[in-house]
Nucleic acid binder design. Structure first.
Lengths: 202, 202, 202, 202
DNA sequence: AATTAATCGAGACGGTACGTCGGGTCTTTAC
DNA sequence: GTAAAGACCCGACGTACCGTCTCGATTAATT
């Protein structure tokens, strides 16, 4: 990543790197994940096959690198006024990301592959795009919640329904982020609230 | 499927069919989904390649046929006494299914493939194993809920967190079905209950 | 080779076999031995790469099969009247074969490869085109010679000069088969002849 | 070749040159000619690939340079007493050279390659190791022969049998240089002698 | 001493062939 | 008509070597 170049040798071509990442993005849309081959990527990028293999082992790795930054940006939502609106905005972004965005298509393809490819699973484990973004939003909307509820569980409760909805092939149109956000808050209060005297109430 | 045999000719070999389905089950565990090939299946089943292609188009189809019945059984839980225990038992079964069961591995593989293969997505759409089982359980534990909340949304809220948890690679050990079930009930009551006379159960 | 077809299975395509052999012949002339690749042969023959590999391991094998019959024919000369003319006719044919014939080009390529590839050397050892033809001619022109001189040595003396001449890159134009044939006979008589009827065996 | 160094610049590394030549010698024995690659030579010599390409175009060139001197030495035999012994000694050296010597292996590899690579053929044409040595020996053993018989033809007659014997894969053990030398002399006398009144008889 | 220029190593680059594998299809004999 | 066997064309796999190209670092002879 850093421009380190261990003394001697021709430096890596930034042009080739960018061309490959773009090629992957394009091909995912045009031919789909499974029809996207290392050979095809190389040809589309106008780069030799060896050069692709020199820097990435699998198409999953390339796709991951190509989409990680976009994914992060798309899941970063600006704070809304109240907690529910804030969460709803996030869930809306999440739905859009998973169902319609290009980076989301990459994410779903990778997560799909991870279900039957340990290497891809491990790759995805290195950067928890959804978990990270969700944690940020939850902490902002419902401060101090993490003190009573493990972060991962709160995340699962928040994003789970939307995640399941999209990945099981249902249409995003019928998703009502507002409802899910409200339900999450209600649920959280019922779970952590009473016993703690309103910790999550703010 | 039906045992119809259009007069004349050698009847389909039931032995071959069973051998193929078993081979698929075995191979999924031994080599994984992506390394499982039509050729490999035929050889493992001791069957000619053409015979496999005659009855199934893709490995996804075979896997689907081989695991659908098991999946249904594993997700059918017997009623417990109270609503929360009932739902918790179901979520527990769901977690076990997704994370540990053989049929669940098939399901995850297929659902993974469905994320980037429209044909598989359509195939999975013909039988909503999780949705069907969840609907049954919800209707049993919280009768009449469907009248105020669309079934699919209720299902998403119930199974979503567990679904996300497993598919995003988290360990089932840290899943507490009891909590999730309780939260679901609380959430449902907060959502549909107050406005309808207070008790959710109605 | 024989049309044996062990019950079941699609029979080998005679068309594909012929196409490959022809392709090899053509390519040797057009691009030369080293630029002739298995891939190129397959493409030129309009045959899949796998099909080529199914029946032959190396281009040397194909070339050998493609040229062996032609070589044999080109080296079979009709008897002339007297011994010297007979041998001269043979040496003339040998020179033409090595220096100008298509089959001869194959032979030289293979013999060349055999100098640094044991597998090719072994392949060539299975059929001694030059040795066989030379033995026949010698036996016809100088009967009973073999009784006093080992066949291989007689062969080497007969064909050696022509063989060296061509393979070391000299022009065939300056070769005088008549002289070589006469010299061979003279030499043989000096070696085995004078004493014939007494010391021939030495 | 000459140590000319066009003013300025780092002088050619004699160490690198020697390392490459040695590497080629070693690799020919260890892996054979065809498995010997420019890349492999560079690595074995501990030299950069570019450095090899800077001074030689092909592995044939390197091999030629590496073995030419050795070849010349091995084919230079000291005069024996009489003509036949002298020629026999040479043919013996030639057999040893072609069949067993390291330089001879290089020569055979190059001559083999020359059969289907014009560039190598031309390269070999620049220095006729066998022809030169044979001419010297013939002139020493049978003076004035060249006046009546073209040198090249005499050479071909002398070395041809041995050359054919080895290159066609026969064992050197069965070669009897003495016989071949005697036959050569007999043949030569029959050919050139009578008509010239004993010019070559000495 | 500073400059110049050709060398050296390292290693990335676009190509091309390697031999193998799986995809589907087709053609044969046997049941 | 199904089954087993196996050849067929196709195209991707990941690797190796090709010959070329930048790099930074040396190493003289020339200023």
């Amino acid at each position: 990543m850093t421009t380190e170049q261990g003394r001697g040798g021709r430096p890596r071509s930034e042009q080739a790197r960018a061309a490959v990442l773009h090629a992957v993005d394009d091909l995912l849309l045009e031919v789909g994940y499974s029809a996207m081959t290392m050979k095809g990527i190389a040809e589309r990028a106008g780069v030799s096959r060896q050069t692709v293999y020199r820097w990435w082992s699998t198409k999953a790795e390339i796709l991951f690198e190509a989409s990680a930054i976009d994914a992060e940006q798309e899941l970063a939502v600006r704070p809304a006024g109240d907690p529910v609106s804030d969460l709803a905005a996030y869930l809306d972004a999440l739905g859009r990301f998973l169902a319609e965005s290009e980076a989301g298509a990459s994410y779903r393809a990778l997560l799909g592959e991870a279900q039957h490819d340990a290497a891809v699973a491990q790759l995805l484990g290195t950067k928890d795009v959804i978990g990270d973004s969700a944690r940020t939003v939850i902490d902002r909307a419902v401060p101090h919640l993490m003190e009573s509820v493990p972060a991962d569980r709160a995340v699962a409760r928040l994003v789970g329904p939307t995640f399941f909805w999209i990945l099981s092939g249902r249409s995003r149109a019928e998703l009502v982020a507002q409802d899910l956000a409200a339900a999450f808050v209600a649920e959280i209060r019922a779970d952590a609230g009473p016993s703690r005297g309103g910790a999550g109430a703010r």
